[in-house]
């Protein structure tokens, strides 16, 4: 992990596929909307592989926005985002799995939602259905595959979104509060999936308000407050001794809850 910040210029796409170590890098990222500064001089590396980075911060801190900037969905006003030598653009989009805070279900069946992602990733037609089926089964969603995705419960939709994000075998997985509306059993299933994904060599970024979950999964913690990164530290250090007052307060408040 020590040299992960140095991006080898020879690290091309092939290098990444072969299990290269390039993380998603933000340098000096700033973003303002309507006169409000939403992200302020954010410099970080996310999704080091393998590993789980947990982003913590109060509501409205800019966590979701940061994920979208990092995935190349929102263009920052200042600074830049790099994944390896280039920005994360469409040609490599399928190597980033993204589960939004509000999952977006296509107006199709659960199965079709997953096969759609497989098609976008260039999986040959005859393989798609079988692969989607086994993925859904693994996500404990097999019994729902023919159901319209739009009528699923919030928790079910989040699980479908995660399965769909994993379907394309991404190298980086960005999860925005994936267990926010899940019951304990589903939460455990998701956490198991995250661990398995990490073990498979994928860099995971996880936004969560569940501090227990953060402790269970994090290799590293990023703490964001009002659009600024206040801390980036190994998980153990952060939880034992947060270096900023804001983080301490946040953790205390969280523990009280």
């Amino acid at each position: 992990m020590a040299d992960a910040g140095v991006v080898d210029p020879r690290l091309d796409d092939a290098g990444l596929v072969a299990g290269g170590v390039a993380p998603l890098c933000c340098s000096g990222v700033g973003l303002a909307r309507g006169g409000r500064v939403l992200l302020d001089d954010v410099t970080l590396e996310l999704a080091r592989r393998p590993g789980v980075t947990v982003i913590l911060g109060p509501n409205g801190a800019g966590k979701s926005l940061l994920l979208r900037v990092v995935a190349g969905l929102v263009e920052p006003d200042r600074g830049r985002v790099r994944w390896g030598p280039r920005p994360p653009d469409r040609s490599r989009a399928t190597r980033i799995g993204f589960v939004f805070q509000k999952p977006v279900m296509l107006r199709r069946s659960v199965l079709a939602n997953v096969t759609y992602a497989l098609r976008a990733a260039g999986v040959p037609r005859h393989e798609r259905e079988a692969r989607a089926r086994s993925l859904l089964a693994a996500g404990d969603l097999g019994h729902l595959e023919r159901v319209s995705a739009r009528v699923l419960s919030g928790g079910e939709q989040q699980r479908v979104a995660l399965v769909r994000a994993l379907a394309t075998k991404p190298e980086a997985l960005l999860l925005d509060e994936p267990t926010a509306s899940l019951d304990p059993r589903s939460t455990q299933a998701i956490e198991a999936l995250v661990r398995a994904t990490r073990a498979a060599g994928v860099g995971v970024v996880l936004v969560t308000h569940d501090l227990g979950q953060a402790r269970r999964l994090a290799d590293e913690v990023v703490f964001i407050h009002r659009g600024r990164v206040l801390e980036q530290a190994p998980a153990a250090c952060f939880f034992d001794a947060p270096s900023t007052a804001a983080a301490r307060e946040f953790l205390d408040g969280g523990l009280v809850l």
Partner: peptide, 25 residues
């Protein structure tokens, strides 16, 4: 408005996006 970011993270081409939107709508 609802689909844009999801389709973009799936790496869908502009043309496919139009087809998807027409189909789903």
């Amino acid at each position: 408005g609802e689909y844009e970011e999801q389709l973009r993270v799936l790496g869908v081409s502009r043309l496919e996006m139009v087809a998807t939107l027409l189909w789903d709508a």
